[in-house]
């Protein structure tokens, strides 16, 4: 038995028949309309407040944020974000581009932006966390490993299948988000210019490399980065599911790590070694839109590197453990 594809076929059938992927789609189908509705209400409210002109609305947002910069009660951390935000919005205003041009595509871009560090990793965990542990809990691992196939091949087939499903989840998130929000906001907007290349620094945002790209290009870049984040989280969850016998434990471990990431992102600014943890590096899309990095010294290549090291390490651990370990129960 030389080909790995029949094994990948097996794994794919199992994921689909176990209805794991349907759960992912269902979660998207329930949540995206909720976000769409919330967005719609906000747009309506803004329209009654500022009329049809988005410039008035944007100017108001800039003024609000500038005012809060003067307040003592606002922590310095927040002020950093707001200063960057103000600069960006001014840039949009000067170039006469509406950053919040309502439309399905803009909604999708924002949705992807917000879901990259927690929501999509969570969806991926639904599949990755029980790829191996479910075989152990169900006892089917005995059947799987007593066939005339090397263990590394069995594991590789699972890994390939995982990669396929990570890609599928990222693409489905885009499609579902676009189709549903498009019904509310219209399906146009792929060619709206979006600015990227903001480089937040200590002294203010460096505008020298800012340039406009079409929104579809921006989304494509986002999806690439989200795919990378998703794959890393998927591989880590995969490793945990090799190490831990119970699926529940494996999900809890990964959830704890991800949530710790979001908490750390908000408070670890002064603990600079935290930047080597994978969970604070999941917000890759923020580098595109130009939000300041949670910890100093973090850049897009840095984060990509950190994630790659974590992903590689978990693949090595997974294979080392899976091929050597005795199956005792």
């Amino acid at each position: 038995m030389n080909s790995i594809w029949p094994l990948v076929q097996n794994e794919t059938i199992k994921i689909i028949k176990k209805k794991r992927f349907y759960v992912v789609l269902l979660v998207l189908l329930v949540l995206v309309p909720m976000f769409t509705y919330a967005q719609m209400r906000q747009a309506q409210e803004n329209r009654t407040k500022f009329g049809e002109d988005w410039r008035v609305e944007l100017q108001q947002a800039i003024t609000d944020n500038q005012n809060s910069l003067g307040s003592d009660r606002v922590p310095e951390e927040w002020k950093k974000y707001r200063r960057v935000f103000v600069q960006q919005m001014q840039y949009y205003l000067e170039n006469d581009v509406n950053p919040n041009e309502p439309g399905g595509v803009t909604f999708t871009r924002e949705f992807l932006d917000n879901s990259s560090s927690l929501f999509i990793p969570l969806l991926i965990m639904t599949i990755a966390s029980d790829l191996v542990s479910a075989e152990r809990t169900g006892g089917t691992i005995k059947m799987l490993l007593t066939r005339p196939i090397r263990r590394w091949k069995v594991l590789l087939s699972k890994l390939i299948t995982l990669t396929m499903f990570v890609s599928l989840i990222v693409v489905s998130t885009f499609i579902i988000s676009y189709v549903i929000s498009g019904a509310a906001f219209g399906y146009s907007g792929f060619n709206i210019p979006v600015f990227t290349g903001f480089q937040p620094g200590d002294t203010g945002t460096d505008m020298s490399s800012v340039h406009a790209i079409a929104q579809w290009q921006f989304i494509l870049m986002q999806m690439g980065l989200i795919w990378f984040v998703g794959l890393t989280v998927g591989l880590l969850a995969f490793m945990v599911s090799v190490l831990v016998r119970s699926t529940a434990a494996s999900i809890v471990i990964m959830m704890a790590a991800l949530i710790a990431g979001t908490i750390l992102t908000n408070m670890a600014a002064s603990w600079s070694t935290a930047k080597y943890l994978f969970m604070v590096n999941l917000g890759l899309t923020n580098y595109l839109s130009g939000s300041p990095a949670p910890i100093e010294g973090m850049t897009l290549p840095f984060s990509l590197g950190v994630l790659a090291v974590w992903a590689l390490a978990s693949v090595i651990v997974s294979f080392a453990v899976f091929t050597k370990r005795d199956v005792l129960n």
Binding site: L7, N10, K17, K19
Partner: peptide, 30 residues
């Protein structure tokens, strides 16, 4: 292992697949 068929302890198969699908699954592995 190509010469061996085995049931170790209980015959645990995938409950969410049919009997036929289970057999197809293991057929693809040899």
């Amino acid at each position: 292992l190509a010469y061996v068929g085995s049931i170790v302890e209980n015959p645990e198969m995938y409950p969410y697949l049919t009997g036929w699908e289970n057999l197809e699954h293991f057929a693809r592995m040899q």
